Computed example of a mutant assay.
Amino acid sequence: MTLQTKVIVSMNALLTGVQDLASAEVPLSLRQALVLADGAGAGMADRIFHDRRTIAASGSDSLDLAGGLSDPLGVSLSFARLKVLLVRAAAANVNQVLVGGAASNAFAAPFGDATDKIKIPPGGTLLLAAGQADATGYAVTASTADLLLIGNGGAGSSVTYDIVLIGASA
């Protein structure tokens, strides 16, 4: 089994305005590609997990990155490091989706502190990606720093989110 990954981020914006004597346009075009070959070194990944999940009102998911998940083919997987973390909140959500902040054994590598949380509003997306030359990415440590908490930011209604984790086994 091999994994080939390409993550492409593209952004185009155009700011226009009218000045006293002329019109002004300031274009922005940004494109970033991350290509990962199969493996566990720099520019490589060999593990993937993806799912659409629903969390009850005021609830949370605790995803064990070091042995608690299965890949799309049903094989148990364990990440030693993450290279890509994508969480997309459903547009129909009423509440925010919270990423991070596990009370114990928190996967805190991309956060400043184990209690830090990123709030994703309805329809929003969080994307963290390690650089092409980075062999480490976001380190996962089994039994001490391997729980990724995804939470429902409110009461009264459930939230749905999509998650993609791409990383390496060593």
Rank of each mutant, 00 (worst) to 15 (best):
K117L: 06
L63C: 12
D134R: 10
F111S: 08
P110W: 02
I120Q: 01
R52G: 10
G137R: 04
T54A: 15
A102L: 08
L82P: 04
K6A: 06
T115Q: 15
R47P: 13
D61P: 06
K119D: 04
Q132M: 05
D64S: 10
G39A: 11
G41D: 08
T2A: 15
L36T: 04
N12E: 02
F49E: 13
S58Y: 07
I166S: 05
I55E: 05
A33G: 02
P122T: 08
A130F: 02
P72S: 13
T160F: 07
A92S: 13
V75T: 14
G100K: 07
G43L: 11
Q19L: 07
A33F: 04
G124K: 01
D38I: 06
L34C: 00
S143V: 03
G151Q: 01
G137D: 01
I118E: 04
G68M: 14
R81S: 07
G112R: 14
Q19K: 02
L73R: 12
A133F: 11
G124C: 06
F111I: 06
L15Q: 05
V97R: 01
D46M: 07
A108R: 02
L65M: 06
P27Q: 02
A13W: 02
V99T: 03
G74Y: 12
G151P: 04
L165N: 04
P27V: 00
V164P: 14
G154Q: 08
G74V: 11
V140H: 13
D38N: 14
S58F: 03
L21C: 00
G167V: 12
D71G: 15
G59W: 01
G123N: 08
Q132Y: 02
V164H: 15
D146M: 00
L3T: 00
T115W: 11
M44D: 08
D146T: 01
T125Q: 08
L36Q: 05
T2Y: 13
G67T: 12
V35G: 02
D51H: 15
S158W: 01
Q4N: 08
V9K: 09
A133T: 09
A102S: 14
S60V: 11
A155E: 11
G74D: 11
S62M: 12
A91E: 09
I150Q: 02
V140Y: 14
N152C: 05
I118S: 03
L85G: 09
G151W: 03
Y138Q: 11
A24Y: 08
P27F: 01
A45G: 01
D46S: 09
A89C: 01
G67L: 06
R88P: 02
D116N: 13
A135N: 09
E25M: 07
D38Y: 08
L73K: 12
I163V: 11
R47H: 15
N12L: 00
T2K: 12
Q19W: 04
Q132T: 04
